[in-house]
Amino acid sequence: MIHRRKFLLSTAIWLAGTSLTRATVIRNDMPWDPFPSSAPQMERPGPWQFFTADEARTMEAIVDRIIPPDPETPGGKDAGCAVFIDRQLKGPYGSSEGLYMLGPFIKGTKEQGPQSSLTPAELYRKGLAALDTYCKVNRGGKAFADLSTDEQDDVLKQIEAGKIKFDEVDAEGFFSALLQNVPEGFFSDPIHGGNRDMAGWKMIGFPGIRYDYRDWVNRHNERYPYPPVGIGGRSDWTPRKG
């Protein structure tokens, strides 16, 4: 049924792109292994891994508009949302690893889901470039990051409303990705590079991964008093940048 050569070729391609382990035969005992084989990598502060310096400057401006700072809680920039997105785009998410990426790529209905061949990494690269180009042409020769925050908000609002279009890439699609990824950076576990000092969790009163609330399930309508804990430990242990 399967043509042998074609099959071998496609399998080789497929394997190269995944982290599948070896097939094993299991019998007689639970294949017990006491330690994690899938422990997460901790993203540490440090140089940009995906963004260029210019892109990073634009991104930090954007994330601070999507989640602006206020007197009690840092904004997207200080919460590490741009760092989070940088690490995500460098990793498997950025290259659409594991997704079905065979053609033909045909635009379908909304109900049929995304059909773009563009990876998130390509989308950000093109989106950020197009945003700066737009601003330079239409906003007095300035890059997005050099606009006032009011002007930045205005540009983003117009993109959201479909009033600003980019040539290179779907501006609204880029904005949707931002609306997905920036809150991810604000609220995901700090090991992924965002939510620095658990700022997002502290803001809302989410205690993170405490995992055991048996003492609390029957304490109704009472504020849970303990500070958040993450995979990497408590917020006061989290490495600070610089």
Partner: peptide, 20 residues
């Protein structure tokens, strides 16, 4: 798919990872 077990694949110190 792979063999999966509590201590190797979802121990409590990293199972609760919403993003992942």
């Amino acid at each position: 798919g792979p063999w999966r077990n509590t201590p190797t694949d979802f121990p409590p110190n990293f199972a609760p990872d919403e993003l992942r």
